[in-house]
Simulated scan of single mutants.
Amino acid sequence: MPGIISCYPARLLFPILLVSLTLACSDARGPRRTSPDVSLPEDVGPDANADADAELDTDAELDADADADTDTDAELDTDADTGPDDFISPEARRLYELIIAYRAEHDLGAIPLSPSLSLVASIHVADLNAHPEITDDECNLHSWSDQGDWTPCCYTPDHTRAECMWQKPGELSIYPGLGYEISAMSTRMTPESALSLWQGSPGHNAVILNQEGWTQPWQAIGVGIAGDYAHVWFGHEPDPLR
């Protein structure tokens, strides 16, 4: 198994597991699927990302025994007459509960589960499962295909298309604020493994625990997980549907 390829920031590639790390390396040694951590717009908070040298234990085994919905062929019907929680799957709710329990261990309060941000997360999960090729080159897991009713983009490590992330909640839902996403990809994705991967990446862990550049309290969280991907969205504005 290949070792960790470290740089500042770092990336990690190994055969059955690819993880979105704090920032992708700037070298050009071939295709990558790692993605940068979320960044802050200048008018929201610090203009520096929550950067850190992230190293994961490549020898650790992930618990992938949970029953997960891996039907990636089903299309997400966002036009049907749906209720506010219809896009929150049992696996997504489980991941939400794990995140809230983890925050409680650090004396942090619960974040209201947002139907709007969960819709965005579910659509992004469905998009990447249907079009994984969009992350074959320098585009990371925050990228979107051109196969849907949204603005497509290749999200690169230099954050030049950061607004593609921030503005997705406004494009796809009634959520009134900007959105910030953490992402992970694995061929054995479960709620437990997704959280474990983010806990092992200092930049992502800081987003979850309101640390470093992310101290402003979250007022909404949305969760999507299916197939090979997990996305969690955070926002500073309450969801009107809640």
Rank of each mutant, 00 (worst) to 15 (best):
Arg103Leu: 03
Ala104Phe: 06
His106Val: 04
Gly109Pro: 13
Gly109Cys: 10
Ala110Thr: 15
Ile111Gly: 05
Pro112Glu: 08
Ser116Tyr: 05
Ser116Ala: 12
Ser116Leu: 03
Leu117Tyr: 06
Val120Tyr: 01
Ala121Pro: 09
Ser122Asn: 04
His124Val: 08
Ala126Arg: 15
Leu128Met: 13
Asn129Trp: 01
Ala130Gln: 14
His131Glu: 09
Pro132Gly: 01
Asp136Leu: 08
Asp137Met: 04
Asp137Trp: 06
Glu138Asn: 06
Cys139Ile: 01
Cys139Tyr: 00
His142Trp: 03
Ser143Trp: 00
Ser145Ala: 03
Ser145Trp: 06
Asp146Trp: 05
Asp146Ser: 13
Asp149Lys: 11
Pro152His: 11
Cys154Trp: 01
Cys154Gly: 05
Cys154Glu: 01
Cys154Ile: 05
His159Lys: 06
Thr160Ile: 12
Arg161Tyr: 01
Glu163Phe: 12
Glu163Cys: 08
Glu163Val: 11
Lys168Arg: 13
Leu172Gly: 09
Ile174Ala: 15
Tyr175Lys: 02
Pro176Ile: 13
Glu181Pro: 04
Ile182Cys: 00
Ile182Leu: 00
Ser186Asp: 11
Arg188Thr: 14
Thr190Cys: 09
Thr190Glu: 01
Pro191Leu: 04
Pro191Cys: 03
Ser193Ala: 13
Leu197Cys: 05
Leu197Ala: 11
Leu197Ser: 08
Trp198Met: 06
Gln199Arg: 15
Gln199His: 10
Gln199Ser: 09
Ser201Asn: 13
Pro202Ala: 07
Gly203Leu: 00
Asn205Thr: 09
Asn205Gln: 14
Val207Pro: 08
Leu209Phe: 10
Gln211Thr: 10
Glu212Thr: 15
Glu212Ile: 11
Gly213Asn: 14
Gln216Lys: 15
Gln216Thr: 15
Gln216Leu: 12
Gln216Trp: 10
Pro217Ala: 09
Gln219Leu: 09
Gly222Cys: 00
Val223Asp: 12
Ile225Val: 13
Ala226Ser: 15
Ala226Gln: 15
Ala226Phe: 05
Gly227Glu: 07
